[in-house]
Every structure is written in C-alpha cells, then in structure tokens.
Design a protein around this nucleic acid. Sequence first.
DNA 1: CGCCAGGGCCTCA
DNA 2: TGAGGCCATGGC
Length: 214
Amino acid sequence: MKFSLLDIYTVLLQRNGNLAWWPGETDIEVCVGAILTQNTSWHNVERAISNLKKEDLMSADKILSVSSERLSKLIRPAGYFNQKAGYLKGFCKFLKLYSLPKLSKMEPCEVRDLLLSIKGIGPETADSILLYALDLPIFVIDAYTKRILSRIGIVSNKATYQELQDLFHNKLPTDIELFNDYHAQLVVLAKDFCNKKPKCSECPLRIAGICCFN
DNA sequence: CGCCAGGGCCTCA
DNA sequence: TGAGGCCATGGC
C-alpha cells in the first residue's frame, strides 16, 4: 500500500478540520439515530427524531410505554417504520437490563456481542453505538467506507465488514477521537465527492495523489 | 419518473 | 456463508 490510512486522514482533516461528529444531544438519542438511519438518509431520520422529542419520548422507558402503532407513526419519515419500531422496542428492553453508563464501563468486545444479539442491531449499528454513544474505541464501517477504500484500491469491492474493520484497527492507533473524526471525514467525503457517480476531478484525495479511480 | 440514502433480517442453496 | 428479496420514506 503506497499511502497509509493516516495519510488519507491527514488530507481530509486539512480540508474539513475536526468534525466533532454525530448530531445527537444525548446518548439515547445517538442510539435511536443509529437504528433509524439504517439505509436511510439522515435528513429523514431528523424528522423522526424531532417527532419523538416533540412528544417527549426520547428515553428507553417512554419508548417502551407507547404502543408500537404510535411509535411507528412517529418514526414514519425514517422509512421501514414498522421494522424500526420493533428494533427500537427491542433495544430499549435491552437497556432495562444494561444501562448505557454500565455498558460504557465494560469490555468493548463484550458490549459488542451483547448489542449484536439484539434483533435489528447489526455490525454498523452496534459499532456506531459503541463509538458515538459509549465512547469505546471501535471503528465504524459503512457503505461509504467500503466504497472509498475500494476505489482507492486498498481493499477489493468484496471485502467484508470484518476485513475493513480489522484494517482500521490494525493500522491506526487506538484513539477514540481519531476513530470518531475519521469516520465522519469519510462520510463527508462520500457525500461531497465519492458518491455513486463520483466527482473524481475535484476530489481532495485525487488532488493529493492518493486516489486514481477514474 | 427512477434512483438513492450512514442496514439488517429471513430464506434458500 | 453468501446471494437475493424485502422493508418505505423523502429529496433530487
């Protein structure tokens, strides 16, 4: 590999500055957002979160106290609302056993396995919760990460979630702030340049000589 | 109108 | 274990 993951990060950081990411006022709001944003644009998630907060429902107990029908209706803008209502209920039920403060003091791998055992919490959602709500040093992989790294040529387009995550964990220092901002930088790059139809000619990674896709 | 967006589950081989 | 169908809204 000609360029390291830190080289890439340096270019992105210089462009955007530190992004101090994940819009969410509270830890539970981060978790709810992580579930609602599955395959969904953040703009639609914001409407759903806004509906929940308007009804003063942004807590595990309150989400459990309303009917699934009402919850579905409130999160409707986020899409897949019937599925996601069930996912939210399941996650909140889990929080009755393990509170967020308690989880943040446990071993990251242990918490990850617990989260993955919840229906509707897959690798990306679990890792988003681990990093952005629990402040545990786990790197979040998403479709953007995979697209960017495969276009650069660092991984194949068939790379698995684990392969990508191992790469970041092995090549980067274990640093929560770095993991947090790096993922944010990749999301911004993907939205601004590395979309389905990439704008390679203006891409900062191409200008820096790191990416030669297209 | 079609495509896409910060996935994950179920089924079936 | 991996490929394919399914879930659904809103922006462009």
